[in-house]
Design a protein around this nucleic acid. Sequence first.
DNA 1: GTCTTCGGAACATAAATTTA
DNA 2: AAATTTATGTTCCGAAGACG
Length: 353
Amino acid sequence: MSTEQPKTAPSAQEHTFPPPTVAYTAQHFNGSYPPPGPPGAYPPYFAYPPPPEGTNGENGQNGAPPGPQYMMFPPPPPGMVFAYNPTQGPGFNAPPTPQSLPALRPKRKQVKMACTNCAAACKRCDEHRPCERCTKYGVADTCKDGQRKERKKGIKRGPYKRKNKGGPNDSPSYGDRDAEAPAGGEWATPTPGGTAAAIQAVAHQFPPSEGYYPMFYPPHGQYIPPPPEGQPGQEGSHGNGQPPMMPYYIHPGSYPPGTYPPYPHFSMYPPGGPPPQQPPHPNSHPPPIQAIETVDPKAPKTINGNNAVENGDVKKRPRTSKGAESKAKKAKGTRATRVKDGDATGENEVEGE
DNA sequence: GTCTTCGGAACATAAATTTA
DNA sequence: AAATTTATGTTCCGAAGACG
Ligand SMILES: [Zn+2]
Ligand SMILES: [Zn+2]
């Protein structure tokens, strides 16, 4: 893979599944996905680290990724998610590629230059003058373009790190919206309302950690209820299109050393043991289906699962008193002059008034 | 509840660096 | 020269405060 993020991808063992606060629905998975059970009982997907640099994934032996049934290979294109197990790629052949899905989210567009009022208010502007917002607030007369200051030149930088684009084993990071389609065509577009679209929605809810790719299992199999509490979960195998095709946990510690990625050991239950409670009777009626958007315009920030508020840490914001937006009050100095990092030599000032 | 304010993620893109 | 990476300055999302 390439592209951004200097972060270290967690190992398969370390990977934790996001909590399935499910919104993916049975109807999108032909009625058998997700399997019934308490929240958190099943991971929504499997994730594996990408193949190490310099390997080509031919046989799954030392240093190379294993076959398609275990490894997403070829790795999913950026911002894409495979709807099914890939069945084709270097080192193996089978029916055509699985369906891939377009980037999860469109980029936010912004105007080249916001008017001073909008900039001060940190609100969306448009290219009209007066802009819509100023008109709405009755300050059309003060709707003017701000002035973008010139970037400073002559600043020395350290060496650039190569990002190795287009190498034979290069595959972009999941969520990379800028990646190009592979030679020979475009990314497939999911049928709205179809399984692929549903999976896309799932991917949206559970973005994989950096360096990981999501892998979803289609509901070809039937649901196999978990064994009674205290009993070990049934091991699952797949790859031949056989059931059960449902989420299983990857068990750590069962990897042959020296292989990559380690052939995982599947279980219905997480390494910690079976889920605390029994699911409702599997034959009971499925829960009500809610519609899921293929592309949610406002989902939690970031697609790559970094950033955001760390631990529910809420930080207080100092308040300035009174302000006026709603009327033809006063639009002050542009907040756009805020300087985030105060280490630059250049200084800037609010241009008074 | 509505409205304003603003922290900081997301964007856009020029400058610096590397490569052809 | 072009291609690529990085940094800088910006926009504006979304949620915290203010305020009935
Ligand atoms: Zn405006
Ligand atoms: Zn305006």
